[in-house]
Simulated scan of single mutants.
Amino acid sequence: MEISGIIGAIVIGIVIGTLGRLVLPGRQRIGVLWTIAVGIVAALVGTALAAALGVADTKGIDWIEWLIQIGLAAAGVAALERSRARG
């Protein structure tokens, strides 16, 4: 993987993770690095899921792919917060 790919994944992770946190009500008590990590994982899994569904490569903006990624990020942030609250 090239450095531009790594930087792109971090930027996408920040955006997806932040949007995932904004979707959830209330305050989430996880750090910025965890948000980025959840966002990167959600972006990768969301892209694979969108490709499997056949909605990843459309003309223009891939809104369905973005919605899948944001939904996965919200689920990831909620799961991480729950697991950290128990510990």
Rank of each mutant, 00 (worst) to 15 (best):
V23F: 05
A50N: 04
R27D: 15
A85N: 14
G5H: 01
I10M: 08
R21L: 10
L24F: 07
T47K: 01
A79R: 12
A37Y: 06
I40L: 12
L24W: 09
T47N: 02
L72H: 04
G87K: 15
E2R: 07
A74I: 01
A50F: 04
D62F: 00
L24T: 12
Q69L: 12
A74S: 08
G60D: 04
E2T: 15
G20M: 13
A56C: 04
E2D: 05
G87P: 11
L72G: 03
A42E: 09
Q69I: 06
G5M: 02
V41A: 11
K59H: 09
G26R: 03
G76V: 02
I12S: 12
I10T: 11
I70G: 04
I30S: 09
G46I: 00
A73L: 09
E2M: 06
I14P: 10
L33T: 11
L33F: 10
I7G: 13
A73H: 07
I6A: 15
R86L: 09
Q28V: 09
L49I: 08
A48H: 03
G76L: 00
A43C: 12
V11G: 09
S83F: 12
I12Y: 06
G39E: 05
I7H: 01
E81H: 13
T58I: 04
L53W: 02
V55D: 07
I12G: 04
A50C: 06
L53Y: 00
I6V: 09
W63Q: 15
L72V: 06
